[in-house]
Design a binder for these strands. Sequence first.
DNA 1: TTGTATGCGTTATCAA
DNA 2: TTGATAACGCATACAA
Lengths: 339, 339
Amino acid sequence: MKLKDLAEHLQLSQTTVSRALNGYPEVAEETRRRIVEAARRFGYTPNAAARRLATGRTGSVAILFPAERNLLVDPHFSDFLAGLAEKFGEADMDLSLKATRKTEELDTYRHLATMGRVDGFIVSSPRSHDERLSLLAGLNMPFAVHGRSQDGLDFPYFDIDNEGAFRQATELLLDLGHERIALLNGIRELNFAQAREEGFRLALAGRGLSADPELIFNGPMVEEMGYRQTCHLIDRPAPPTAVLAASVLLAFGAYRAARDRGLTIGRDISIIAHDDGLPFLKAETLEPPLAATVSSIRNGGYRLAEILLGRIAGKPASELQEVAPVDLVFRPSVGSARK
Amino acid sequence: MKLKDLAEHLQLSQTTVSRALNGYPEVAEETRRRIVEAARRFGYTPNAAARRLATGRTGSVAILFPAERNLLVDPHFSDFLAGLAEKFGEADMDLSLKATRKTEELDTYRHLATMGRVDGFIVSSPRSHDERLSLLAGLNMPFAVHGRSQDGLDFPYFDIDNEGAFRQATELLLDLGHERIALLNGIRELNFAQAREEGFRLALAGRGLSADPELIFNGPMVEEMGYRQTCHLIDRPAPPTAVLAASVLLAFGAYRAARDRGLTIGRDISIIAHDDGLPFLKAETLEPPLAATVSSIRNGGYRLAEILLGRIAGKPASELQEVAPVDLVFRPSVGSARK
DNA sequence: TTGTATGCGTTATCAA
DNA sequence: TTGATAACGCATACAA
């Protein structure tokens, strides 16, 4: 059943029927009622392709991810994706998932944009200097970024206060008397990792200390990495008394390392992490409960979807930039530095 | 730039240009050359919505997943998704990810289908009796299933030989003298879990044994579950001498339990699992290396995408049904039963 | 081998 | 408040 059929059945023009169904104001209430009723009765649904062609809007957004380094196995990414899918589902928009080789990534953005296959893009894991952002800005394509960059571009984004979070966490450790503090961080190129390191450094500088490069690690945020790096740290001549981890997964590995080495967490070594709220690995249920700066990455996906929708609806970038504050939750995995 | 502009520039009709670009045979080679060259030079790309409307094909497929139970955190699902995304990307098709509440799931299928927003669906994790399948068959919508059901419907699918795999693995254990064998399985409602249990039972029956219901567990395939269930098993009066796990994640938990209880894996207790080829958790690098039936779930996603594309292209279901055999790889996590 | 004309199912413009 | 009609940009049946 198409619009024409419905209109003929109702003895009305397509125009009127279309207007009634799309909620335009200039339709008599009685008429609208009849139309809506009939549409429901016949199970009429507008054809998506036709509507797209007529309106110029596709009702779909895309997110690209590198095919090689399988980002989908990263629970942070997956959970973020879940947040996106939830909001876009509510808005009845399609979220299209694109695996692309690194070398073809920019071409894929161009391809999808010039074919008019999407209304916008979600960009995740921005690097400090990220060519995707200038490309999309140049293509005049709506996009929204999960995080920020340092390219000086003005674009819609959702980010958390990574610098503030890590400054706070570091200050807590300093207040407890820790001075040799290690940082287990994400991959160096990613902007959020740099922001976190910056927060770490600022806190130290505030006490007249400076970061020891040998206590800073960058790498994938997986358990294995947390384990290996923490073992390495503990085996040093002067091991750190506290570890600050960029993810609960890393902290989980650090817990394993500490246990292996016979250290009591919270007493012999303090551990604190940033908690993205991964549903299967909760900071509060570790043993001992893990102190953390918390912020749900899934919720971040949800909010970023709203932001992209706002952008597509024409809002200016300046109204679509959000930095969520991060709370610090104290738990027994941190204690005062041992003398 | 649109088709019309390009045609005018070339002094040709839209028809000819369209035909040349879409690879129709009835175009003079010389003409085609000119057209292709000009298209490239002007960066012409056909508009997706217009093409959709004209051809009736959307160039997009969807996969739905339950919003509550966040399936995206399941690495099996994510890896499967990666395989899908790879193949659909190659075919330049959009893979649309839909989070939907369980109660609205069937409505969402209907909604997307009647709006003509997709050319087909990927259905994952079928239950033994699954109403999604009959719904989609009734809607006359192409779909392809990751696994099978027991509804007696004829549809395209990709599955692995779950029954055969678990029969083989069980037989191996029996050959090594094990008689009290535990099964750590997935959720009971899912068809693949039933097939695995069936294989397990068949192997036992072949030796005149029957499965002990107290040694069969169903639940989510996560490390925690493997750990808890194996602890429980070991603490029994007559603990099993071997454990058969439906996933390396479960086996990983079983390893932890065995270590906690001071058992040596491969000697005091044998462990074997099905290995979906998750990239971050390899059976061969566990300590000791884990014996397993192997089959890449990511590759399954890739194959299933091909199958759905075949269905959309009009192939009959009977040509699109594939059951991949599963190899058994022997490794030191299994040994002969202790007397 | 090329071109003409029409259809695809909406939404948007303009007039009544 | 409603309706006729023109886009939207492409593909394709039919004609030449």
